[in-house]
Simulated scan of single mutants.
Amino acid sequence: MKLLHRNIFKELISIFTLSISGFMGLILIGRLLQFRDLFMGQSLGALEMAKLFMYLCPFFLLMLTPIATMLSIFLTFLRMNADNEITALKSGGLSLYRLLPAPIIFCLLCTGADFYFSLYGLSWGTENFRNALMEFARTQSQLAIQPGVFNKNFPGLVFYADGVDEKSGIMRSVFVRDNTRKGMTATIVAPLGEIRTDPKMGRLLIHLENGKIYQQEKDQLSVLKFKNYDVRIPLANILKGYDVDELRPKEMSWKKLVRISRAGDRAGDIDPGFFKKVQVEVQKRLALPVACLVLGMFAVPIACIFRGLKQQYGLIISMGLFLVYYTMLSLGVTFGESGVLTPVIGLWLPNITFAIISVVLLKMAVMEHSFSIRIPFLKKFRRKEA
C-alpha cells in the first residue's frame, strides 16, 4: 500500500507541476502584453521585469492552485481507470476508499499552500509590486527633471530646478507652475525640493520646503508661505495608464481586511459598498484554499465513473467543471457585494454544493456505477480517415 500511495502521489505532483507551470506561463505572457507600454516606457531590464512578475505570482497562484489540484487528481485517476489499474486493484480486494489517502494528503498540502498565498503571499506581492512601480516612476520623474530645463511632460504642470543632486535627488531653487485646478493658477517657488513616493496611497510627490505660493484666481492674487508643501505628479503619464491608487480590498493584507470587517459600531463611518467588498474578500480568501480540498475530492469519483474517456477529453471536462465552480463563485461575489446574499452564503455555497455532489458520486463510484462517454462526430471523423 505504501508503494501504491507513493506512486499515486508522484504522479499527482508531476501533473500538478506541469499544470501550474503551463497556466502561469500563459498568464504571465498575457500580463507581458498588457504591460508592454509600461515596460517600454520605463526601459526596464529583464531582472526588473522578472521581479514584477514574481510579485504578481501569489495573486495568480491563489486562483490557479484549486484548478491545478483538481486537474492533477482527475487526470491521474482517469489514466488509472483507462488502463484498468483501478479494476485490477479492486479485483485484488482493494476498494476505492483504500486509494484515497494519497489524494487527500495531496489536497491538504495544496490547501495549506493556497492558505499561505491567501493570508500572506498576496499582500507581500501586492506591496512589493506597488513599491517597485512607484520606485520606477520616481526614478523616471527624477531623470525627467533636468537642471536648468523647464519640464512640461506632465499635463498642467511645469517644473524647473536650477540644480539637481544626482545621488540624493535633492533639487535646489525649484519653480513649479500648477494649472491643474480650474480657474486658478498657482506658482510655487522653494529653495529645496525632493521627489518622494507614497506607495500606500499610490502617489508620487514633489516635496518642497520653506517656499511661497502665488495663487491667482481671476483678478485676485494671494501669497502664502509654507514650511512643507507637496505637489502631486500624475502617474498616468509615467506608468502608461496603469492604476496605482489606494489599496483595493483584493490587494489588502489579511490583518487589514479582518480589522475593517470587525469595525463594529465604527462600520457606519466606512462606505457601505467598500465595507461589503471587504467582507466578500475575507470570505473569498478562506473559500478558495478550501476549494483545493473540495475540488480535489470531487475529481476522484468523476474520473472513476466515466469509462472510455481519453485524457484530452478529460481535460476539457475538468476545465468545464471548474468553469461551473468559478461561475458560481463569481455570482457569489457579485451578489455579496450588491447585498443580495450575505458573503458567507455567496462565497461558501459553491464549496458546499461540490462537496455534497462529491460524496454522492464517490458512493456511486464505490458501487461501480459508471457512465460511458460516446462522441458521435468523432466516430464519423475516424471512419472518413480510414
Rank of each mutant, 00 (worst) to 15 (best):
L341M: 11
D265P: 05
L323F: 15
G264C: 12
L293C: 02
K276F: 10
D265Q: 10
Q279P: 04
I302C: 08
T342W: 06
E281S: 07
L309T: 13
A287Y: 01
L288Q: 01
G336P: 04
L331I: 11
L347Y: 02
Y313D: 12
G339Q: 06
S358C: 04
S358I: 03
F274S: 10
R285F: 05
L347F: 09
D271A: 10
R262T: 14
T327W: 05
T342V: 10
K277N: 12
Q312N: 15
V333D: 02
T327Q: 05
L341S: 05
Y326A: 12
D265H: 09
S358A: 15
F322A: 07
F274M: 10
L329M: 14
R266P: 07
V278Y: 08
R307C: 04
I356P: 00
I352E: 07
A299W: 04
I317N: 03
V359Y: 15
A263F: 12
T334M: 07
A263L: 08
L329C: 11
K284G: 14
T353Q: 00
P343N: 12
T334E: 06
M328S: 09
I357P: 01
G264M: 10
V282P: 01
W348V: 09
L321S: 07
D265T: 11
I316V: 15
G314N: 07
S338L: 11
L288N: 02
G264F: 12
K284Q: 14
V294D: 00
F298H: 03
A267R: 05
A303R: 03
S318M: 13
I317P: 04
G264S: 10
Q311V: 15
P343H: 11
V360L: 11
K277P: 01
C292V: 13
L341F: 13
R285K: 14
V360Q: 06
Y313T: 12
V333L: 06
K277Y: 05
P343F: 12
Y325N: 03
G296K: 00
L331H: 00
G296A: 08
G339W: 04
S338T: 14
G339N: 06
C292H: 06
M328N: 05
R285N: 04
Q279G: 08
Q311K: 13
